[in-house]
């Protein structure tokens, strides 16, 4: 695959929200409950980046900009980074790694378990995200990386479940996800009929 000179831009693009968020936190712009807002926004960006990652191949095909495919990996790795920070910030800033509260949250709150499972599903993907791993694994790589679909579905379920009400954002996330899944399904179908 020929890479374009602009494809490296994906990395700073993925870093920008984090930089912005850290700046806001450092300058006291996150309001009277800053850690809670910080944790929420990291999770929001993780989901947005994961959906963006999945949009890259359809976008490359539909817009005929093949170079966009490179951003799948960039945004995928960033999404994993944001989810990891989301979890770490939650456990550190909000719960202070208190084993009682951690145990209670992980044991009793289904939406936390769902989110955790989504994050765990992303570990093998992050671990095999290098070009070398991809080459080495061949066809098994593509198979393994289908794990991204359960991960993102769990992510959207987690996001919808955290809310008190107000399902506008969830609806948008779910719509985007549904379109991606349909697109993917049609592609697979066409390939298998060839």
């Amino acid at each position: 695959m020929k890479t374009r000179y602009w494809t490296w831009l994906g990395w700073p693009l993925g870093a920008a929200p984090l930089a912005w968020l850290v700046l806001e936190a450092a300058s006291g712009q996150l309001g009277p409950d800053p850690a809670e807002v910080f944790v929420e926004r990291l999770g929001w960006w993780a989901l947005v980046l994961l959906l963006t990652c999945l949009t890259m191949r359809p976008a490359a095909q539909l817009l005929r900009v093949p170079g966009l495919v490179v951003w799948r990996r960039t945004f995928g790795v960033w999404a994993f980074g944001y989810v990891s920070l989301h979890f770490l910030a939650w456990a550190t800033l909000l719960l202070g790694w208190d084993p009682n509260y951690l145990g209670e949250e992980l044991g009793k709150r289904p939406y936390i378990i769902v989110g955790l499972l989504g994050w765990l599903a992303m570990w093998p993907l992050a671990a095999t995200s290098t070009r070398k791993a991809r080459r080495r694994m061949g066809a098994r790589w593509a198979k393994l990386h289908r794990l991204v679909f359960p991960a993102v579905i769990l992510g959207v379920v987690h996001q919808s479940w955290v809310q008190k009400s107000g399902y506008g954002e969830t609806l948008i996330f779910a719509l985007v996800l549904a379109m991606l899944l349909i697109y993917r399904g049609l592609k697979d179908h066409r390939l298998s009929n060839k």
Partner: peptide, 14 residues
């Protein structure tokens, strides 16, 4: 969906 045994008194800090 969450515990009511404690609360974050606002404003708090990061």
């Amino acid at each position: 969906r969450w515990s009511q045994s404690r609360e974050r008194r606002l404003p708090n800090s990061f």
